[in-house]
Design a binder for these strands. Structure first.
Length: 412
RNA sequence: GCGAAUGUAGCUCAGUUGGUUUAGAGCAUCGGAUUGUGAUUCCGGGGGUCGCGGGUUCAAAUCCCGUCAUUCGCCCCA
């Protein structure tokens, strides 16, 4: 099969659409810079181990969503399904322990083998920030604030709700997990099929279930928050206090869980109802054990990821690019003169459209379509006088300008 | 992985219960009216394996089966 169809779940970003994409990245870049984050990038693929070990062997991402393959050298590799693991790997292998807190911003394509639908692709783009090496609740607050500010800059914060929860430390989670499984096991017959499979995998997920039978069991189910150690409780209280101090609105959702196993303490997501079934716009949490799992020294971390396509769907159109001027030479002498003239104007920072062929009518039509603000008409008459006819394409007014004064006349 | 809907020109769509020998429209595109002036108008041109494959029929864009893709939902997630 040599079909030219794009791979399922992939999509092209054509020039008409790209400014919206760039607008999202620019907003994130600007805000993260204000908070002292530095931009970086990592490879789009890693050894499979990097993702398998960190995301959790039983997570959906590892079990069925990874694009994995064996390369010619026989190594098992995987296209990154998320950014955090790769950045942590980079932190370790580049010896950045001396650089904590390691505050970074990154963006790029991610790959997940899923059924595509609105706001969900197999190759999609994410924004990502991480703070590695800060164990304080203040880091959680800052990371959330960065997310809120980016959403605000894009004009979508007002359509989002920040939900958060504490997943506690590993001690809290282990204790709770045990009671929770016992509780649901006792009522296993009433659980939905989905929840039965969630039981061993990620019992917390059952709290999210939409199934009637599952929901009936929830009121009496043991809540994680009752099993939080006092230090975990204190940590979460610190995060909430910081959000209050910053004036960031939130809703504590005791049922909030994350899909990746490495999260501890704070888990949060900005959700919207404007995206159909894919309500999550920006989500993340703390992952204090992750670096150690990867083979690094015990190092805390926190971060989030946001789907660029989802943000594009919510955000308004960016400001349009500066309008060019169109050069319209008539005749061979003028066409030759136009080459150097166009280059000179461009060097002075003026965007110039210059067609390679066509009569005047044709070129003016193209100038119009290119959104040009003015046409610079250059024919034998003008050349002889050392001027150009500059036509304002909005007003329709035309006047003669000396070639030497052209750049100045067009800068205004 | 599961369920449902939809695939006709570059785009948006029409195509009546299968039946008028070349499958239509608008927009877009190209050319001309106007070889030195961009809205508009007028005239004309190009562009279609009717998603793909098979089947039923005298006859299929239309009915049936399969397949691929898209969309929506479930699962899950950004």
């Amino acid at each position: 099969m040599t079909s030219l169809q794009p791979i399922r779940g992939t999509h092209d970003i054509l020039p008409d659409e790209y400014p919206r994409f760039a607008h999202v990245v620019e907003a994130a870049r600007a805000v993260t810079r204000l908070y002292g984050y530095r931009e970086m990038a990592t490879p789009v693929f890693e050894t499979t181990e990097v993702f398998a070990r960190t995301s959790g062997e039983t997570s959906d991402v590892v079990m069925k969503q990874m694009y994995s393959f064996v390369d010619r050298g026989g190594d098992p590799l995987t296209l990154r399904p998320e950014y955090t693991a790769g950045i942590c790997r980079a932190f370790i292998t580049n010896g950045q322990q001396q650089n904590v807190p390691f505050k970074v911003f990154a963006w790029g394509p991610m790959f997940r083998y899923e059924r595509p639908q609105k706001g969900r692709y197999r190759q999609f783009y994410q924004l990502d920030i991480e703070v590695i090496g800060s164990p304080e609740p203040g880091a959680d607050v800052e990371v959330i604030a960065v997310g809120a500010d980016i959403l605000d800059r894009l004009g979508v914060l007002k359509d989002c709700v920040l939900e958060l929860n504490s997943l506690g430390d590993s001690e809290s989670r282990a204790a709770h997990r045990k009671v929770l499984i016992d509780y649901f096991k006792a009522h296993e017959a009433r659980l939905s099929e989905d929840s039965k499979s969630r039981l061993e995998r990620n019992p917390l997920r059952i709290f999210d279930s939409k199934d009637e039978g599952d929901r009936a069991l929830l009121p009496n189910a043991p809540l994680l928050k009752e099993y939080l150690t006092s230090s975990a409780q204190g940590f979460f209280a610190g995060v909430l206090r910081g959000l209050d101090d910053m004036g960031i609105a939130y809703r504590v959702n005791p049922h909030l869980v994350r899909g990746l196993d490495y999260y501890t303490h704070t888990a949060f997501e900005f959700v919207t109802t404007n995206l159909g079934a894919q309500g999550t716009v920006l989500a993340g949490g703390r992952y204090d054990g992750l670096i150690e799992q990867l083979g690094g020294p015990p190092t805390p971390g926190i971060g989030w990821a946001a789907g660029i396509e989802r943000l594009m769907m919510l955000a308004g159109a960016p400001e349009s690019a500066p309008r060019p001027v169109a050069l319209v030479p008539l005749g061979e002498a003028a066409e030759r003169k136009a080459l150097s003239l166009a280059r000179d104007l461009r060097r002075r920072g003026i965007a110039v459209e210059l067609d390679y062929k066509g009569n005047m009518k044709r070129r003016l039509q193209r100038a119009n379509k290119a959104g040009a603000r003015a046409a610079v008409i250059l024919g034998d008459n003008e050349l002889a006088k050392g001027v150009a006819a500059v036509k304002d394409l909005d007003k329709g007014e035309q006047k003669e300008v000396a070639l030497a004064a052209l750049a100045e006349a067009l800068s205004g």
